[in-house]
Structure formats: structure tokens, C-alpha cells
Amino acid sequence: MAKKVEAERRSRAPKGHFVVYVGSKLTRFVVPLSYLRNPIFQQLLNKAEDEYGFDNQNRLVLPCDESTFQRLALFLAKR
């Protein structure tokens, strides 16, 4: 499941995970690499590409609010 990280104590995600930023406050979440295989998450990544392109200060920003992303992460964690 995605983990919300309040303080950016870690600059890198643990092995097998990656970092995404969500919402207007760019909340940092650490998510498992397995999310990349899910078609719903892939759609969200495509939407991020369309909205932000690839030049986004070396961050992967997803175009949704925090509560929507948390619901998606719960759904993906159960699969």
C-alpha cells in the first residue's frame, strides 16, 4: 500500500518502491513497483504525462487529489 511520508527524511525510496507526489501540496507517497503493472495506474501516469509532460523538476507528480490517490492505493493494495 502507498505510504504517505510527511517529512522527506529519505531522498530515495526503499528497494522495490518509487515515489510519487500528489495534490496541490505535493504530498509524497512511496508506492510499490507492482503498481506500474496495473492498467488503472498506467492511465493515471498517462494523464500525468499529458498534463505535466516529462519536465517536472525530477518528480513524478500525479494529477489527482490526495484522497483520490489514497482510495486508489487501497484498491491496488487489495489486488
Rank of each mutant, 00 (worst) to 15 (best):
S24M: 10
R59G: 09
H17P: 01
R71F: 06
V5R: 13
F41Y: 06
F69E: 03
F41A: 02
L26R: 08
A77P: 00
R79Q: 14
T68D: 14
K78D: 10
T68S: 13
Y21E: 06
A48M: 00
A2M: 05
L62N: 01
V61T: 04
A48T: 00
V61I: 09
E66V: 14
L76E: 11
A2G: 11
S11V: 11
R59H: 11
K25C: 06
A77Q: 09
P39K: 05
S67I: 03
N56P: 00
E51L: 06
E6I: 15
H17S: 11
L62G: 03
V22T: 11
Y52I: 03
V22I: 15
C64F: 06
D65P: 01
K15P: 00
E49L: 08
A2S: 14
V20C: 07
N56R: 05
I40H: 04
Q42D: 02
A7S: 13
D55C: 07
R9Q: 12
R59T: 13
R59D: 08
F41V: 02
K47I: 05
L26E: 13
V20T: 09
R37Y: 14
T27Q: 13
V5H: 04
D50M: 07
A73H: 00
P14T: 09
Y52F: 06
S34C: 03
P39M: 10
A48P: 00
V19Q: 14
F69K: 06
R9T: 15
T68V: 10
R28C: 08
L33V: 10
G23K: 04
V31H: 02
E8M: 14
Y52D: 00
E66C: 06
T27W: 07
Q57N: 14
V5K: 11
E51K: 01
K15L: 01
R10D: 15
T27D: 15
R37W: 11
N46W: 04
L76Y: 12
F69G: 08
A77Y: 05
L60W: 00
R12Y: 14
F41G: 02
Q70H: 01
Y52E: 00
C64G: 01
E49V: 10
V5I: 15
A2T: 02
Q57R: 12
S11M: 13
E66L: 10
F18P: 00
R37L: 15
V22G: 01
L45G: 01
H17G: 01
F29G: 09
L45S: 01
E8S: 10
N38D: 15
F41S: 09
L26G: 03
H17T: 04
Q43R: 11
E49I: 11
L44I: 09
K78S: 10
K78A: 12
I40T: 15
V19N: 11
K47V: 03
V5A: 07
D50C: 02
A73M: 05
E51C: 01
T68G: 05
V30H: 03
A48I: 05
S24N: 04
F54V: 07
R79I: 12
G23Q: 05
K3G: 01
L60R: 03
T68H: 12
R79W: 14
G16P: 02
R71T: 12
R79E: 14
L33G: 07
R12E: 12
L36S: 02
L76G: 02
G23V: 12
L45T: 06
A2Q: 09
S67K: 13
